[in-house]
Computed example of a mutant assay.
Amino acid sequence: MKFPKLAASLVLVVGVSVSLAACTSATGSSSAASTATAELTSAQTACVAAVKADVEASTAVTALVAPTAPLDLAKLSGKTVWFITVSMNQFSTDMATGVQAAADAAGVKIVTYDGQGAANRFNEGIQQAIAQNAGGIILVGIDPAVVSSALQEATAAGIPIQNTLNSDPSDPVPAGMYDNFTSDFTKDGENAAKWALVDSGCTADIVSLYSSSVGVWQKMYDGAKSVFDEYCPEDCTFTGLNVDVANVSTDIGSQLGTALQKDQNVNYVYPVWDSATPFVAPVLAAANSKAKVLSRDGLQVNLDAIVAGDQAMTTAMPPTAWIGWAAFDDIAREMTGSALLDYVIPTRMIDSTNVGDGSASSTFPEYDGYADAFTTAWKS
């Protein structure tokens, strides 16, 4: 039995508005601002009207997603959960901190395993977890196709494995896994594109950077492109650059530099992940481009850049440690035979209108004290 989806689109429209004044800085402070109606063609006016409500909803305050049902902590006694991640970058480190805090509160041991970006390490991690009688595995950002044999072994051993941040929520759950714990990446790409349409008055000339080797990046790119194809096929331009993730800094420099030389009217650059933005900035500077930068994830450095006026927008997730708490809650419910809550990690588009000081209290105010919401529900 499963409860209804806790949807990423669940938002509280509280005190948030979208500015109507366009920003003129290069990559700087901006809101999804529409050009005055008199300056738009009828097609552009219709385009803005068609997407503006989605932008307003996606920049609004996001409600706290937390469990309300109890968790049988006694059934977790003596259990160990393995946290196996594609690599231990800042995001996975922060998420692991949340998983550890939740496990400590539940009396569960956590083993963290760094996949180091290597398929053989991914498989070894799962096999080690099986050998050590893991109670469950949180598998973060790892393509199930490259660990299919190990997943079969874990299934045979009765170990539940969570497919974490590797799909859209509605995608089929891969064989050998029990659930998709993730965000709606396609929708995030769609909403970022809609933000650019409203901000530009549906005159956006955008270059999107992604890598087809990373499934969720492909989903965001596809989502963004579909919006331009549907709402602004004549007055807008959408260009995709498929970069080599193994040589991301040099490939972004080469491909984006060439794209800006070919089209000097580019007014938005959209790398679909935050950590690409440091490679984008020098290319824009070298080309003397005033394109605004959009991205996705909500890393603190990007939020700070929006505060400083050096970036226009990022699609942010809640505090990363909350993601760890929710991931632990999800797998703990599977381990104890409880009904799953079917989490969808919410996101919020952050720009100059709602960034505040860039802190979690400003960007996700409803998430203050989220840990207490989990522990209170567990003991209810």
Rank of each mutant, 00 (worst) to 15 (best):
M1R: 11
K2N: 07
A7P: 00
S9T: 15
V14R: 15
V16K: 01
S17P: 00
S17A: 15
A21G: 04
G28S: 08
S31P: 02
S31G: 15
A32W: 12
A32N: 09
A43F: 01
E56C: 03
P67E: 13
L71N: 10
D72E: 13
A74N: 15
A74F: 03
L76H: 03
S77V: 01
S77N: 13
G78R: 10
G78H: 07
K79M: 09
T80P: 00
I84N: 11
T85N: 05
M88S: 14
Q90K: 12
T97Y: 04
V99K: 02
A105G: 10
Y113G: 02
A118K: 15
N120G: 02
E124H: 05
I126K: 06
Q132I: 05
A145K: 15
A154Y: 08
A157T: 12
Q162A: 06
L165Q: 14
M177I: 09
S183P: 00
D184S: 14
L197W: 04
D199L: 05
A204K: 08
S208M: 12
Y210D: 02
Y210E: 12
V214S: 11
V214R: 04
K219E: 14
C232G: 04
D235Q: 15
C236G: 09
T239Q: 14
L241Q: 14
Q255G: 06
G257Y: 08
T258L: 11
V266D: 10
V272K: 07
W273V: 11
A276Q: 03
F279Y: 15
V280I: 09
P282Y: 11
A285P: 00
N288H: 14
S289P: 01
L294R: 05
S295M: 04
G298C: 03
D304I: 01
A305K: 09
A308Q: 13
Q311G: 06
A312W: 13
A321M: 07
R333P: 05
R333G: 11
G337V: 11
A339Y: 11
Y343S: 10
T347D: 10
M349P: 00
S352M: 07
T353R: 03
N354L: 09
E366M: 12
D372Y: 06
F374P: 01
F374T: 14
W378H: 07
